[in-house]
Design a protein around this nucleic acid. Sequence first.
DNA 1: AGCCTATGAATGAAGG
DNA 2: CCTTCATTCATAGGCT
Lengths: 198, 198
Amino acid sequence: MLMEVVRKGHEIQSISVDGSESDSLSRQSCTKWIPTNEQARILRDLYHTYGVRSPSVEQIQKISNRLRQYGKIEGKNVFYWFSNYKARERRKKRLSADIPSSSNTTTPPGACSSTTSTLALSQLSAPADASFHLSAMAVCWFCDVGSNATCFPHGPHVVGQMGSSECPGSVLMEKRYKVYLYCELLYVVICYEHATIS
Amino acid sequence: MLMEVVRKGHEIQSISVDGSESDSLSRQSCTKWIPTNEQARILRDLYHTYGVRSPSVEQIQKISNRLRQYGKIEGKNVFYWFSNYKARERRKKRLSADIPSSSNTTTPPGACSSTTSTLALSQLSAPADASFHLSAMAVCWFCDVGSNATCFPHGPHVVGQMGSSECPGSVLMEKRYKVYLYCELLYVVICYEHATIS
DNA sequence: AGCCTATGAATGAAGG
DNA sequence: CCTTCATTCATAGGCT
């Protein structure tokens, strides 16, 4: 039973129907998996008709088990198939989407102009940036404390500001006090991040 | 048949000699890090032979410093490499765990991979979760340190590495890796502070 | 014989 | 930890 052969030589490897997976003969280089016509059809159907995009491990196992009746197949083949197909569909769409930009000089605000929507940036960046500024402060300040001001040229100013009421020169600041201030800073950082997330 | 298969094309950059090739002329404008053969071999060896899974910052620094003799490399490359390799090993195992119909049921090597033991200098789990776990982790670490009083000296050299590869407080450093470094930094600082005050 | 295209496989980087 | 994305390598088969 050779099933309908439409597609070229790929069929040869899996021509043996059901059961006997004796791919053995005709092996012609077992380098990579090549889907049979039926496998490819079902995969595309899953993608376009049923909207499968990035199946979970369980789904992958189900799919590969089902497709095994049409030829040798592994879970990773299904995994890679969906990964590649999705990526290439996206690329095709992306290439065809950015062409019309030639005529219009000004980018329409908020328009569905191709590629990844950028609206997330404005929403998410603020807290993260702020917390990382605090992180940077902590890093700079710690470096100053730990090595007595040698690492970062612009590090000490943080300390200088914090202790400006008493010791304008941060270098002379007592280590104990630095640690104390750093505890305060840590507390602020932690509280800030906690408040930001919550 | 399954012989490892090391990406032929990449070998071009380091095909010369196994031991001493300079990645150097890794063409294509080096948009991203591509491990040399020797680097990849050592990394896999660390993973499989020495059981390294989620190395701490200190380990990452040591590894990347050691691997630098074989080509350009940063700490974050090592960080991502272990992250990816571990995740993909796990997924491979999960995907190949199916196949109810006997064939290929042989469990691949690496049965008990849950060890995570050995040469781990730090027992800290890699804080790779996300930024929203940062505060919780920091608090936990703080409490843990405060009660257990496990301290170790030295502080600055951890952050010192940051400045060596790029600008201090580098904006270029990826957020993920920054969070990772920052979490470790918090721990170091707290220990340092605890040791200083006590 | 020699490209060319489609596509399987792999992996660095990053997000959540 | 687990996905997701983008890019790249590798190769089979068709075309001229």
